[in-house]
Computed example of a mutant assay.
Amino acid sequence: MYKNLAATLVAACFISPAFPQSAAPAAPPLKIGFVYVAPVTDAGWVHQHDEARKAVEAALGDQVKTTYVENVAEGADAERVIRDLARQGNRLIFTPSFGYMEPTLKVARDFPDVKFESITGYKTAPNVAVANARYYEGRYLAGIAAGRLATSAGYIAGFAIPEVIQGINAFTLGMRSVNPQATVKVVWLGAWFDPPRERDAAMALFNQGVEVMAFHTGSTAVMSAAQERGKLAIAYHSDMRQVAPDAQVLAVTHQWGSYYTRRAQAVLDGSWKSAALWGGVKEGMIRVDSFGPKVPQKVADEVRARQRDIAAGRLHPFKARTALLDNQGHEVLAAGKTMSDEQILNMNFLVQGVQGTLSK
């Protein structure tokens, strides 16, 4: 009898409101990995992607857990790191560098249940999506500002891939849209991130009389060089006024947080699909802002107005007002025509006004 009573009391304890049953365990967080081609610094390409990683954490909270590996060389080392992240249980992996595309595809074949986002890549797979931004839109706007302030510009470039060529050409066309005599001298660096060589190249161009500098590399070295020499420069990737408070004309900034958050949410709710996105000013992925103190208000207002025109579809940087010529004098686009996305994505020439050749 007493044994039965004791058993009844014990059972009652477990169903009493004073002793509620344990809640179902929470789902484990979605583990997300990021691979960076250079160190995380206070500004630049990697900085913008790390800010996007933080935006994912802020938006999704305990639903996600992120990790990153920085300063990973493109090629075999990238494949090793991406593979390690997949083995560690990351179900979503962002690989934001063009040279990570092939390693990402290779690892993805071995981990079909992992989702990969190849940023600046162009090859997709069932579990590999690609995304890129129309950086050239921001470059064109920066060129307008540069053309209002100077006639000669320099451009430090990493590699002669279409994305970089688009930027050089759009910047030059922007300059020449307001200053038809403007010229742009190009120096190919053969690296994405090499601050000493970036600085040396900028100094060499300043010594040649260049008035304003643009660049497609990963550090703030060009901005620092312009600040040191009392010259002007266009910040790229992110606002760089902290290193060039007087030299910065404006910043062409890349905004990845919204895209990264949407893709993480899609994995969480099971709606993720392979896709290809090429977004720009209209989509909020490219923005020109952070004007410096040497930029007249009327120039800033003009650039902002042209930015609104691009967002609304009223302005396209690669629409030929007159016949578009390359820097060898050959017509590449007839007057009144607009380049297709396919033509832009395969761009392999430098426009009239650019002083330089495509690196091999």
Rank of each mutant, 00 (worst) to 15 (best):
R109W: 00
Q242W: 05
G174W: 02
V186P: 06
I15E: 09
D309Y: 02
R263K: 13
R83E: 08
V56C: 08
E70W: 00
D42M: 08
A300S: 12
A160Y: 07
N169D: 15
P245Y: 01
T183A: 02
T66Y: 03
I32C: 10
R199P: 02
G209N: 01
S22P: 15
F206A: 12
N71T: 01
A276V: 05
L105K: 13
G313D: 10
D326N: 15
Q242H: 15
L333C: 11
G313P: 15
N132S: 15
Q328V: 00
L85E: 10
L105H: 08
V184M: 09
I119D: 07
F291M: 09
S359L: 07
W192N: 10
Y68L: 08
E74C: 01
A235E: 05
G230Y: 10
Q328I: 00
A312F: 05
F14P: 05
A59H: 11
M240D: 04
A24Q: 12
A108P: 15
A86S: 10
S219L: 04
M213Q: 12
Q297K: 13
R148V: 02
L105D: 00
R308S: 14
G230Q: 08
Y36F: 13
Y100V: 00
V187Q: 13
F206W: 10
L205F: 02
P112L: 08
P29D: 00
N71E: 10
V37D: 07
F206P: 11
A76S: 14
L141T: 04
H254T: 03
D110M: 10
K273Y: 02
P29W: 01
V295Y: 05
Y259R: 13
A18W: 12
Y136R: 10
A320M: 09
L358I: 14
V281L: 07
S118E: 01
Y140V: 04
S22K: 08
L333S: 14
E283F: 09
G167M: 08
G44K: 06
P126H: 04
K185V: 00
L85C: 05
I286M: 13
S359M: 10
E342L: 14
L5E: 12
W272S: 07
P180S: 01
F318S: 03
G230F: 10
K65T: 03
T120P: 11
S118A: 15
A145L: 11
H237T: 06
T357R: 14
S97I: 00
P317T: 01
Y2N: 15
S271H: 11
A129C: 03
F215N: 12
L30T: 06
